[in-house]
């Protein structure tokens, strides 16, 4: 999702009997659905996995500002502009909560940025696709925020307290994001033929990348099994993807759109849709840095950071001067 294919360092999932007493107590608490808090003992693998997942999620929120920010200055009405600004501001806020949640695990925000800028840490593949028309802004809200919600609702029950609580706040805002996206498209499909064509074009381009957000099938993945045992992850990628398709196809029909999948068919027996396989080669290419916008996205983030160094240094220097002056005044007063 916003965190795709997170590694756990596990070779296989241990049983309770194989664990040392401390780890066993930890696992039993997780099994009982108790929340783990920052100061408590936790296995090193659990801590590292959470850092990877939460920071990847945070990076996704931050990089995610860029494709949508691309249309703020071109939004078609003042109201749409205000709504989009509020949305992108929310995403930055999500990044902030998530960086704070990750910091409780002993990593600093600067370190996480460094990992993003060096290309060591990933962010969601979806944000490496371009926003080419205004309909893309609608499609992102509807599909991308929609897929994010699918993944984040179960994360509210994640075993790690700070992450679970960040998710509660975030989920509330994501559903507003999805509604505004759908509303943009609703208005457009009721408009001129050109507007409707723009919406169909957006769906054609965003459908498959949205399905890829859930990551490849992880039924055989030891990392997923370990994450599930730790209750960092609750559902398999395929499960979530199926749920997403089942929820989204009727919404596409309501908009009068054609989902660009010739294999899409309702399956009465399973009570869900059968659908085609995303192009995983494309997915792995995007993850590897070869997506249409990878270079621009990362450059934009690096540039923001590098160009802002003097600003951050200036504030730090001022804070030190001010503290020095306060100390001197105190001494003088004594």
């Amino acid at each position: 999702m916003y965190a795709q294919m997170v590694k756990t360092d596990a070779a296989r999932v241990k049983s309770l009997d194989e664990m040392e007493p401390q780890e066993r107590t930890f696992q039993e608490r997780v099994d009982q659905g108790q929340k783990i808090e920052p100061k408590e003992w936790m296995p090193e693998g659990y801590r590292k996995t959470l850092i990877r997942q939460i920071s990847q999620h945070a990076h996704s929120e931050i990089v995610g500002q860029l494709p949508e920010g691309n249309w703020i200055t071109r939004a078609p009405t003042l109201e749409r502009k205000a709504i989009l600004l509020a949305k992108v501001q929310d995403e930055a806020g999500h990044g902030l909560y998530l960086y704070c949640a990750a910091e409780t695990l002993g990593v600093s925000r600067d370190e996480m940025y460094e990992q993003l800028h060096s290309g060591k840490a990933k962010y969601s593949s979806i944000f490496n696709y371009p926003t080419l028309t205004w309909a893309d802004i609608g499609a992102i809200g509807w599909l991308v925020d929609g897929a994010a919600i699918m993944n984040q609702v179960p994360l509210q029950r994640c075993s790690y307290g700070p992450y679970a609580r960040a998710m509660v706040r975030i989920c509330k805002e994501e559903s507003f994001h999805q509604r505004q996206g759908y509303d943009i498209l609703m208005k457009m499909v009721k408009g001129t033929p050109a507007q409707k064509a723009m919406v169909q074009d957006a769906l054609n381009r965003w459908w498959w990348p949205s399905l890829m957000m859930f990551g490849p099938s992880d039924d055989a993945s030891v990392h997923s099994a370990q994450s599930m045992a730790w209750k960092i992850k609750q559902n398999s990628n395929d499960e979530l993807r199926q749920k997403f398709v089942d929820q989204t196809v009727p919404q596409a029909e309501y908009l009068g759109l054609t989902v660009p999948d010739p294999d899409l068919k309702w399956n009465e027996e399973k009570g869900g849709y059968d659908f085609g396989e995303p192009d995983w080669e494309e997915f792995f290419n995007v993850i590897a840095g070869n997506g249409p916008c990878n270079a621009e996205r990362l450059d934009a983030r690096r540039k923001a950071w590098d160009d802002g160094a003097w600003f951050r240094d200036g504030l730090t220097a001022h804070a030190e001067k001010a503290a020095g002056r306060r100390a001197a005044a105190k001494i003088a007063a004594e």
């Binding site: 931050i62 500002q65 860029l66 920010g69 703020i72 200055t73 003042l78 109201e79 502009k81 205000a82 600004l85 509020a86 992108v88 501001q89 930055a92 806020g93 990044g95 902030l96 960086y99 934009a300 540039k303 923001a304 950071w305 160009d307 802002g308 160094a309 600003f311 951050r312």
Partner: peptide, 28 residues
């Protein structure tokens, strides 16, 4: 709003979006 996503710190991205949002609201 041209700064959106490009500010030197995350807190500034949020603050600038907020300022732009206020100004667009006042414009309306």
């Amino acid at each position: 709003s041209e700064w959106c996503g490009h500010a030197p710190a995350l807190e500034e991205d949020i603050a600038l979006a907020n300022t732009a949002l206020d100004l667009i609201g006042q414009t309306q």
